[in-house]
């Protein structure tokens, strides 16, 4: 099958993830907002930056206050680096080529991952001296340091622009992290077959080679045996409501009708699996188990799920419970 459907897909939690950071990360981020790099001295004397709520070797708790908190940097040394020739729009903070580096701030025993803005890959090496370039507007985020800049011998780092705290300014307790991922997804053979059928006003299912069971809108197998439902079968667009619920929750989907509406499990004539469909064309209170229904097709058929807009009663006598009792 060469013409399997593909589609663009985006995962993005609207507004970004809302991360509460706890007191230790919060104190470090508050320090960044103030224009300072804070670190913690661990029980064995090592100075850890960026600080975590735990000693990375022993997992012992690191307290959020106390005289084990020290300021490190602002100068630092590159321990390792790589070059990013094509920045990712909307993700990387710089829109020109830059280096990612592990940078050990002076006074710290560990390195932190950050960005070095040095123009070209030739302008950085292991051992390069760097210093932070602070953003003027800082929010309490790891990106409050816009980048680290190469520092020549005897050169002084550019100091952070003074942060004047507001009277009611609180320590940083949270950050918002946008995450957007894009995909090109494949429908697969069975789903493409099914969707193409919908575009022609037909419901195409598949039969597994070793059973008589017919699946419409499955993932392509008879889930009982794991065999591909390779035998194409058309099922009817009429069936029976096996069970349903009345939905009173607004806004569950852009496709959902006005509340209240009915979402039902429907056993199509000729199929051996149920699937969910909307029930319309009948008062919500008149929908019942065993009711015979028929697909209401869109005026303009397309090879997607919108072709069947809903199901509505046929007016036939109800199906006998015996017919659908094994499908609940």
């Amino acid at each position: 099958m060469t013409d399997v459907f593909t589609a663009q897909h985006v995962i993005e939690y609207p507004g970004g993830y809302t991360r509460s950071v706890g007191p230790v990360i919060g104190r470090f981020l508050t320090g960044l907002r103030d224009g300072r790099i804070l670190a913690v001295r661990l029980a064995d004397g090592r100075v850890l930056v960026p600080p975590t709520e735990y000693d990375p070797a022993t997992s012992a708790a690191v307290a959020a206050d106390g005289d084990h908190w020290v300021e490190v940097g602002p100068r630092g040394t590159v321990q390792s680096f790589t070059w990013v020739s094509q920045p990712r729009k909307g993700k990387h903070s710089l829109d020109k080529p830059f280096a990612f580096a592990l940078i050990r701030p002076d006074g710290a025993d560990t390195a932190m991952l950050h960005v070095v803005d040095c123009g070209s890959a030739d302008a950085i090496r292991v051992g390069s001296r760097v210093a932070p370039k602070w953003r003027a507007e800082r929010t309490g985020s790891i990106t409050d340091i816009e980048a680290w800049l190469p520092l020549g011998d005897g050169e002084e780092p550019e100091p952070a622009a003074l942060h004047v705290p507001a009277d009611d300014e609180q320590p940083v307790t949270g950050i918002t992290v946008p995450i957007r991922l894009e995909y090109t997804l494949t429908a697969g053979i069975a789903t493409t077959r099914y969707l193409k059928g919908l575009g022609e006003g037909k419901i195409i299912g598949g039969r597994s080679p070793s059973s008589d069971d017919v699946y419409a809108a499955s993932r392509g197998t008879d889930p009982k045996s794991g065999e591909a439902t390779s035998v194409e079968v058309e099922v009817r667009d009429t069936g029976v409501i096996t069970t349903f619920c009345v939905v009173n929750v607004p806004g569950l989907s852009e496709l959902a009708p006005e509340i209240p509406y009915v979402s039902a499990q429907i056993l199509l004539d000729g199929a051996n699996n149920t699937f969910f469909g909307l029930i319309r064309g009948v008062a919500v209170d008149d929908v019942h188990m065993g009711q015979r229904v028929k697909a209401h097709w869109a005026d303009e058929l397309k090879p997607d799920h919108t072709s069947i807009q809903w199901f509505e009663p046929t007016g036939e006598p109800d199906a006998d419970y015996e017919i659908y009792k094994d499908y609940l």
Binding site: V84, F100, L113
Partner: peptide, 25 residues
């Protein structure tokens, strides 16, 4: 690390390259 590192979006290859650089050095 969702607080200190992800917001800077180093890729899987960037991370490996940092290790390669340290290793070769």
């Amino acid at each position: 690390d969702p607080y200190y590192v992800l917001p800077q979006w180093p890729s899987m290859v960037d991370m490996a390259a940092l290790q390669a650089c340290a290793f070769l050095d």
